[in-house]
Design a protein around this nucleic acid. Structure first.
Length: 644
DNA sequence: GTTTCGGTTCTTTTT
DNA sequence: GAACCGAAAC
């Protein structure tokens, strides 16, 4: 491989860096992914076995993309590399080592819904009726914040729930119960995965040592988004070899609300004496007019490692700030622009529409549909969290984990005439477990179902039985397909008005299960999968050429020739709540704006409607975002009506 | 006594 | 949409 030919000087220095700790400050669009890919290729070429390289990323998509590109570069298989998110890595370790810290090997991972169901059972009835008591999802967010920021829950409560009426003592008790309940049931939520791995390494030096010896090189992408615990895990693992390369951009730190601390990046050299620092500042992505906005924007955030993006591209057009009246006007403008760009030769998939919060896109969706412009939205709901996906997965869970009450509950309540009360009555009669291979258990269950319910159950039961008897060999996709044909398809038709789309999702899921050897492997990962992998995406979106709608958070790491940013109104972007509730909120929102701007290659449109509708549909004036007004106006092209 | 249905309210960002 | 709550239906 001729590295000198394919890399610039600053990239080359990183890729060929000698052993030892190393931090790479990589500004947006400077070929960060490329550098990681070539670094891995370089390591492999220099004799490091793939399975002794650990590559930690922030999304599954990023991991898959890097592996694919590395494979293209190296030519040989790189399948042995440990690549994935922190949560995946933690899961992989804990599946081996969980017993050392008192968990069963087949611990269950609770996703958000499952965690909520757990807490729901623990909340005292008088608190559930009390309107001032925090909602379940809020409670869970507070628990999570306490763990991720390593602050006591009391501190979090004081900051987030300053009202004196809130019963703080009850919330603390609840957290204790939740923690105990999870442990007793052999369950971990997302935060536990990270927490328990850190604990495992802290308390079991011999286990830690095994992994320290396994991983000769550790690379961490998006390091600015790690929290203290994650940084600790990386520090622990690399303590022996010292071969750790972290790559990040403090300007793009946008996850501090989940405990991310970009100071991990800035203080890396202090924690790893002798660490080299590299900077990547040559931007290949955007035209200089877009970078001028990005640079001017971030200059308002002091206290960050200032880097200046240098463009290598030719001068083009200034970013456009169109004058739009309200949300509807904004939507019409964007649609009109997209059609015009298409006549210029851009395709729909060259265009992204970005916004601060999912619901900011509603009017936009309506307008795109009206105009017949194909689009796809990365919605707030993750693929595997959707009701119909969890429904069909429940049959696998019941088959594999006889003691899993959550799954049993979910499966049984799909049957007509069965609700939570019925399940709560039946479960103890089964001895708190349901093993479908056990004929007695089947009879006990069957006898407690009403005749009308029994009919539906008759369609489901044989699938469970054959699944149990097939044991390890059971193929998850086949079970899902049989369940869908025998029961769920008609259930979906009766319960959802968009049943065909949901059934399509299930077909995509079935196709996806072929990535897994057996049902257990599939279930062990399912809670950690966010969306179907990038290469599966066309399965769900056969209409390939379509405009992308996304939050700025989910757009991180991606790029498009044309980007529209919606609702640049003060209070929306920046979010009013963040400004009020979080110290340092404005700086973080500004970084978010910076991320949005630096997604664009050729053209950038920043929309700031003059009014927004309040809850009753009355138009209220709103100010343009401070992120626009704080910048020199000559950086933009102010476009006035005349396009309608 | 339970389940199911229909109306109401809310929605920041996510592994 | 989806969670939540109250009321109708089984």
């Amino acid at each position: 491989m001729d590295y000198q030919r394919v890399l610039n000087a600053e990239q080359l220095r990183v890729v060929t860096a000698p052993d030892g700790p190393c931090v790479v400050l990589a500004a947006a669009g400077t070929g960060k992914t490329r550098v990681i890919v070539y670094r891995v290729a370089w390591l492999i070429e220099h004799g490091i076995p793939p399975e002794r390289i650990l590559l930690l990323t922030f999304t599954n998509r990023a991991a898959a993309e890097m592996l694919r590109r590395t494979q293209d570069t190296v030519g040989a298989s790189v399948g042995g590399i440990w690549a994935g998110t922190f949560h995946h890595f933690a899961n992989r370790i804990l599946r081996q080592q969980a017993p050392a810290i008192g968990y069963p090997q087949d611990y269950l991972i609770l996703d958000r819904d499952d965690a909520e169901a757990f807490v729901r059972r623990l909340v005292a009835p008088h608190h559930r009726e009390d309107a001032t008591f925090p909602a379940l999802h809020l409670l869970l967010r507070l628990f999570s914040e306490a763990i991720n920021t390593e602050k006591p829950l009391e501190t979090i409560l004081q900051a987030r729930l300053p009202l004196p009426t809130v019963d703080a003592a009850a919330i603390l008790r609840l957290q204790e119960q939740y923690t105990r309940h999870k442990y007793e049931q052999g369950c971990m939520d997302f935060d536990d995965l990270i927490l328990q791995v850190a604990r495992l390494f802290r308390e079991h030096p011999t286990i830690l040592r095994r992994y320290q010896e396994q991983f000769l090189h550790i690379l961490v992408d998006e390091y600015q988004d790690t929290n203290r615990l994650q940084a600790e895990i990386v520090d622990q693992l690399s303590a022996r070899t010292g071969n750790v390369m972290v790559v990040g951009d403090d300007f793009q730190s946008i996850y501090s609300w989940r405990g991310a601390d970009f100071r991990n990046l800035l203080t890396f050299s202090e924690r790893h004496p002798g660490a080299r620092t590299h900077r990547l500042e040559t931007n290949y992505r955007s035209v200089p007019e877009i970078l001028a906005v990005a640079n001017a924007c971030i200059a308002h955030n002091p206290g960050q490692a200032q880097k200046t993006l240098r463009s290598v591209r030719e001068s083009y057009r200034k970013p456009v700030v169109p004058r739009v009246r309200d949300g509807a006007d904004q939507a019409r403008y964007v649609a009109y622009r997209i059609l015009a760009l298409r006549r210029e030769g851009y395709s729909y998939s060259d265009v992204a529409i970005l916004y601060r919060a999912h619901h900011h896109a509603m009017e936009m969706e309506l307008e795109l549909r009206r105009q017949g412009i194909p689009y796809w939205v990365t919605s707030g709901l993750r693929f595997f969290e959707q009701v119909h996906i969890k429904d069909v997965c429940s049959i696998l869970q019941v088959a594999i984990r006889p003691t899993d009450l959550l799954a049993f509950e979910r499966l049984l309540t799909l049957l007509p005439g069965v609700g939570l009360k019925t399940v709560a009555r039946i479960w103890p009669t089964l001895g708190h477990r349901f093993d479908a291979a056990d004929a007695t258990a089947r009879t006990i269950l069957r006898n407690q179902l009403r005749p009308s319910t029994r009919k539906s159950w008759d369609a489901v039961e044989p699938i469970l039985v054959s699944c149990r008897t097939a044991g390890m060999d059971v193929h998850p996709g086949e079970v899902l397909a049989r369940f869908t044909d025998a029961f769920y398809a008609s259930y979906a038709m009766a319960h959802f008005d968009n049943a065909p789309e949901r059934l399509d999702d299930i077909q995509a899921l079935i196709a996806y299960t072929t990535h897994f050897a057996n049902a257990e492997a599939f279930l062990s990962d399912v809670a950690l999968l966010t969306n179907l992998d990038a290469e599966e995406e066309p399965l769900r979106h056969p209409q390939h050429d379509s405009v992308r709608l996304s939050t700025v958070h989910q757009a991180k790491g991606l790029e498009w020739p044309v980007v529209f940013v919606l609702w640049l109104a003060d209070g929306m972007f920046p979010s009013g709540r963040t400004l009020m509730e979080t110290p340092g909120g404005e700086a973080e929102e500004r970084r978010l704006f910076y991320v949005a701007v630096t997604r664009a290659k050729d053209e950038l449109f920043l929309c700031a409607p003059q009014t927004r509708q309040n809850r009753d549909g009355v138009p209220m004036p709103c100010l343009p975002s401070r992120f626009l007004t704080e910048l020199p106006p000559e950086l933009f092209h102010a476009e006035h009506p005349g396009w309608v």
